[in-house]
Nucleic acid binder design. Sequence first.
DNA 1: CGCGTGACTTGATCTGGATCAAGGTGGCGC
DNA 2: GCGCCACCTTGATCCAGATCAAGTCACGCG
Lengths: 249, 249
Amino acid sequence: MQNTIGSLRRAPVNVVAGGVPELCAQCDARHIGLCDALHDDDLHFLASVAQQVSIEKGRGFVTEGDPARQFFNINHGTAKLFKDLPDGRRQITGFVGAGDFIGLAANATYMFGAEALEPVQLCSFDRAELRAVFARFPAIERRLLDVASHELIIAQEQMLLLGRKTAVERVASFLDGWGLRVASCQGGATRLDLPMTRNDLAEYLGLTVETISRALATLRKQGVVAVGADHVISILNPARLTAIGQAEG
Amino acid sequence: MQNTIGSLRRAPVNVVAGGVPELCAQCDARHIGLCDALHDDDLHFLASVAQQVSIEKGRGFVTEGDPARQFFNINHGTAKLFKDLPDGRRQITGFVGAGDFIGLAANATYMFGAEALEPVQLCSFDRAELRAVFARFPAIERRLLDVASHELIIAQEQMLLLGRKTAVERVASFLDGWGLRVASCQGGATRLDLPMTRNDLAEYLGLTVETISRALATLRKQGVVAVGADHVISILNPARLTAIGQAEG
DNA sequence: CGCGTGACTTGATCTGGATCAAGGTGGCGC
DNA sequence: GCGCCACCTTGATCCAGATCAAGTCACGCG
């Protein structure tokens, strides 16, 4: 498949006369990520070169090695980015959600694959057209540099995790980090609704499914987390979780 | 120590009337990295806000957690970037040489440490002043975005290595990658003059010194490389080395 | 409903790389 | 020259996490 995205359901973004573009108005990412760098008028221009795309759960939408024609900005849902070895070993390099930008780590071709963990909606931008956007709105380019810097920090943190942390430390780091993203507190405990499977977690943390399971069991026995059904994990002792993740205790 | 660089030997870059700035003329990085994005006249402006700094071998010049006041551009020599855990475990996140830019992975404070592996010369730029440079030369900013993108690709490659590759695959990947950087061929064999110790290698590849030693022995016994004295390694069978590093064989 | 399937957990065993231990080698200061 | 020390190698043993195996649970489907 030469260009995965080509066969997906897509629709041009409707642009109304004044105010915020129609589809931007209800976009989860309107006030985070790239679009937040723009005023309403500028947003129209950006929307005019965007294509809204829906991707069903489990569907891949970037294939490593394919020519990198598009950038993506996620509006809704979560996806995983990964790199594979010829024999099937896979390393998930990141999970991306609303407001996140996909496509920086590419030159002529994509250097990673991407797949939706849940139904995903995203805006797709043609790389060539984005050059024009940069010229017109330097703010976008600056923001992109900030995004890239931030991703570099995250990547280095992940190298430390993969190279030097124990299984329990890795799982604790992950839960701690994810907790910061989507903090929805309930009676003192933070409840995480993870979109990924144990297998995804294993491929992200450089471990196996069984080890993830055992590490979670360890944290549960220590009273740090509660493991519920259906990818729900509650953080009972956030301070302890952080300490374990940073290898401080 | 609040600001490591403060106590180092430094000199303002001399700017001559016409042509290329004096110190840029003999700079190893003049035609790679950032400065290549500029014309001679523009280079004068950049040089006027730069400070030349010399760092002796083994000396740290960035401390994680210190306020990030400067960007650096390496002119000569090699340095390691790293992140530490409280108990002393260290992950080297990268080696940087002439033309490489240091300081992208920072927000208010540096999120990594840096130390010279050999005598290093670099240009130091004040972050605040660099804002002005960006405004004047958008080319610099664009180039910086390219650099960041490239570093992201490298970082994801490294995550794959740390999360999924075996010891021998890691060492082969490293040697293969380093070979591409500094290809100096001699009678068919590429001769690598590594600036780092086995211990640095171990901290970069998520292994121990002993394992590095054993992996090199394995590659040597297979006739893929020759291990010489004083950090010299010759690549005897480049194709095989690449195949092992990519887990294709 | 019974059956198949995919996600998860838990237990038993195995193993790649860590750890512990013992040299070897070369540079450098005295 | 001699001793020290940093760096590297090789061998023996250990162990965290992988692999193999078995079973639970929830869910969709004929």
